[in-house]
Structures are given as structure tokens and as C-alpha cells.
Design a protein around this nucleic acid. Sequence first.
DNA 1: TCAATTGCGTTATGCTATAACGTGTGTCAT
DNA 2: ATGACACACGTTATAGCATAACGCAATTGA
Lengths: 146, 146
Amino acid sequence: MNAPVSTPTSAPALTKNQSLVFDVLTRSDAPMSAYTILDRLRDHGFRAPLQVYRALDKLLEFGMVHRLESLNAFVACAHPESECCGQGHGHGHGTVAFAICESCGHVSEFHDHEVDHRLGDWAKAKNFKPAKTTIEIRGLCGACAA
Amino acid sequence: MNAPVSTPTSAPALTKNQSLVFDVLTRSDAPMSAYTILDRLRDHGFRAPLQVYRALDKLLEFGMVHRLESLNAFVACAHPESECCGQGHGHGHGTVAFAICESCGHVSEFHDHEVDHRLGDWAKAKNFKPAKTTIEIRGLCGACAA
DNA sequence: TCAATTGCGTTATGCTATAACGTGTGTCAT
DNA sequence: ATGACACACGTTATAGCATAACGCAATTGA
């Protein structure tokens, strides 16, 4: 009774816990820490951090969620159009960047092919094999910079 | 007796604690966590994390040390030539990127003007005011990818 | 049917970071 | 000088983030 439930639609089937965590992240308009997610899900039977972290690990693996390293927090992927951004799944469009407003907490996810390319060139030149690339810009969004 | 001691050479004068922390980081060829630094400095009278974090805060402010967000660790700035990389000090050359080897722990610091420029353009277009930008590539260095 | 895999729940623990308090010491305008 | 201020420091306690290690339940597939 703990196996993933396949959906009629698409993408990897999520287990109950994974769905709950993903839903919470999707509804949020700001990044959430694992412990905040845990608190939101107490009513649904969550008791321990590991329940959240395990679900997050899978969602990260599926490319449905991103981790913001500079915040120790998580967001749902902003462009769910066709299987998303993952690296190592073949599809997707490479590295994603984030602009994080330090005032309102809003996060904009975007992709810049040229940036990707430049970093890839550097890696190639140095014989470095990239596994995962993090790009996070912290500052003030248009609304907050007013 | 706790005030910074001015050196004959240059740069902001460091206090004793700041010097100790900076020295430890400079001698290390891999990033160090605050707690690892603390352990290295027990013999020099360090007893509590705050002593390390306070020194690190200043060193970060001076641009002499970088924080690796994806590692929760710190490195000495790799290009001490003329006052370094800082943002907000006027000098320096903008955002710095890091390539982190997940096998040997070695970190390469570099700068790509074009990447900087592209991210700056995105920000301008979105009316986003960047304060600090993080770029970290994790993977395998040439030696370890062998 | 049996072994392997995967998800789950629980308890305990470890690592990372900061809050809040008080002390000492320089600076500088009065 | 003296008092106000800023800053570095030391200490204790606590908050916030993440994982180790155990065992159970269900699914899969040889």
C-alpha cells in the first residue's frame, strides 16, 4: 500500500508522501524549508523530518523540485511543461538559475542558454565534468526595489 | 587590546581572531566548515562557534573569504591580487564562480565576464537589483575524472 | 515462494548558525 | 579628563537543517 500510484496523466508516479510534499511546495509562492513543510503536513500524518527529506530527495531526482542552496530551502519547479529541467534524464534544458528577492521572498526561475554555454566551455577547457550547477542571484525584485 | 592591528602592507587590518581564521583557510587546500575551523583553532584559545562565525563575517565583508553555499563551507579568496572580488566595495571584478570537485574536494575559483554580463542583463530586464550572486559547479575535476 | 527493492515510520544524533548577555578597549567630541 | 559610542571579544544557550540506523510492509520478478 506504499507503492507509487500511477496517474492517468504523465511523469513519474508519486507516492502519497511525495504528492503531499509536492502539493505543499506547489501551492507556496515562496521557498519552504524542510521543517516548514513538515509542519504543514502534521495534519496529514507527518511526524519526522525524514519523511519530508525522503520525499524531497525523490522529487529532486525527478526534477520536479529545486533546492535553493543559499537558503536551505526548496521550491517546486516553475516550468512543468514537459518533464522539466533535469540533468541526467536526457530531456530538459540544462541548468536553471534563480533570482531570490530578499525582501518578499519571491523566487524567479529562469534559464539562460548563453550562461550555460559559457560555463560548459570553461568546464571543457579545464577538463572538469559538471554534475550539478547552482546559480542563485539574491537581491531585490522589481516590486520591492520600488 | 582587541582592536585591529594595522600591518605595514595593505588591505583592511585584521584582528587576532580574524587573522587566525584567515590563516587556517589560506593553508587549507579544500573548503572548511566553521566547525572544522573551530577545531583547528582550539589550541589558539577558540572555544565557541561564534568566535569563528564573527571572524568569517568580517572576512566575507572584506572579500577575503568566500562562502560555498552548496557546501556550507568557506574558502580563502583565490586571487588576492589587489583587494579581490568584492561587490559593494567598488573595486574588484564582480561575481566569482566555483568549480567544486566532489571527489577530491578541490575548488577552482574563476570569473567569467560574459556570464556576469548575461545575468546582469537578465536582472536589468526584470528590474531585479542583484546584491550577491552564487555560481557553483559541482562535479569531478580533471584529475579525478581520469 | 523467496530474494531484492522500495517506501515508510521512529528514535536518536550530528552539523550548521544565531540570540542574548556582559566585558574590555579604543575613539572622539565635549 | 569624561562620558558616549562603536567594535571586538567571550560564554551560554538555543534554534534550524540534515542524516544514521533500526525494523516493518508492500511490490516486483526470478
